[in-house]
Simulated scan of single mutants.
Amino acid sequence: MTFKALRLAALLACLAGASSPARANDTSAELAAGGLVLTRSDSIEMRSEDLYISQQAVRVRYVFANTSGKDVTVRVAFPMPDIGGPDFFQGDVSIPIEDAPANVLGFSTKVDGRPVKAQVEQKAIATDGEDRTAWLVANHIPLAVHLGGVDEALRALPKAKRDEAVRLGLYDPDQGGVWVLKTTYHWLQTFPADRPIVVEHAYTPSVGATVATNVGTEYGADIKDKYCVDKALTDTVVRAAKADENGNAPWVDHWIDYVLVTGGNWKKPIGDFRLVVDKGSPKNLVSFCGSGVKKISPTQFEMRRTNWRPEKDLSILLLVSRDAM
């Protein structure tokens, strides 16, 4: 097993996790994903978006309407998070489905209740920014840089080819493969003129984690603004830490990033947007930026918007109780 594979195996055996500037050696980094991206169209409206996010699942239900008076066909895409790069495994990155060459999040989608068979496009981008997919394919090197066998295949190349891989920004003898794998699922979708259609998709999120919580510590300022951590939450954590004989609060930080702003290629703002964040256990705590958030169950929090166009992405901080892990 290579050094890179050992690092990944150790990571996946531990917490499902993410990066933090505060406790970098005890964290693993999340891969931010989001929703569907449509080719820009002035004919299609998003009537509604219903988004559910938990540590176990992201589920989105869209209702799209074509207002042009005639059927419109556009390409719909779901971009996977980028994987790879020179520092990829040094950051200890959370990969939900570890043995998938393309579908690391277990992405699936339906249109009007029927599964969609999407095409997959993968590109290997070298450290110089060039697309080197064709070179890797021609030399029988797997594109999935995160899987075992890649470094072995690179080392097995003739020396001239290995040297070429180094020159092309694909291979570092100390780190193995160093390209960034870009994966996109896409398909052509017809939006009929006479009725709205329902598009649903789901995947397993990449969840960042660390071994403690930074809330209420000297590192808390690093996350306060990103997750809108308020005084009440901070005070709760500080009180719990003071009550512990070792000064440790009974939670660990997990986090999920969701890309909201890249999908707005439709005619109008989202007509009706609903977000539900599920913290998992009543013992867990949660914080994210949003106004009008209300608690709708012991573990779920809801935010609604009308005629809304997101201006920034969503970052969710979960303080997971050690008792709930």
Rank of each mutant, 00 (worst) to 15 (best):
K117Q: 15
K123R: 15
Q122N: 11
L105M: 10
V116W: 05
F107D: 01
S108G: 13
T127Y: 04
R114F: 04
V104M: 05
A126Q: 00
D128N: 15
F107I: 06
A124I: 09
W135I: 02
R132W: 04
K110H: 12
D128K: 02
L105C: 09
S108P: 01
D112F: 06
A134V: 07
P115V: 03
G129T: 03
K110Q: 14
D131G: 10
P115K: 11
R114A: 12
I125W: 05
V111L: 12
V116Y: 03
W135L: 08
K110F: 05
A124M: 10
Q119V: 06
Q122A: 15
A118Y: 09
A118V: 10
R132P: 01
E121T: 13
S108W: 07
V120N: 06
E121C: 08
K117G: 09
G129Y: 03
T109G: 08
K117F: 08
T133E: 12
V116Q: 12
K117H: 12
A118G: 06
G106T: 09
S108I: 05
A118N: 07
S108C: 10
A126W: 00
W135V: 02
K123W: 07
G129S: 08
T133H: 05
A134M: 11
Q119K: 15
E121D: 14
A124C: 15
T133S: 12
T109V: 12
Q119M: 08
F107T: 04
I125H: 08
E130P: 00
G129P: 08
R132H: 10
G113L: 07
I125E: 03
D128Y: 06
S108A: 10
A134D: 14
D128T: 03
K123H: 07
D112A: 07
P115W: 07
W135T: 02
K117A: 11
G113H: 05
G129I: 02
W135E: 01
W135H: 07
P115F: 05
S108R: 13
G129A: 13
K123T: 12
W135P: 00
V120L: 14
V116R: 07
W135N: 03
T133M: 13
F107A: 03
L105A: 04
F107M: 01
F107R: 00
R132T: 03
W135Y: 15
V111G: 00
E121P: 01
G106F: 12
A124E: 00
D112P: 04
D128M: 03
E121W: 05
E130V: 05
V116G: 04
T127L: 14
V116L: 15
W135A: 01
T127Q: 13
W135F: 13
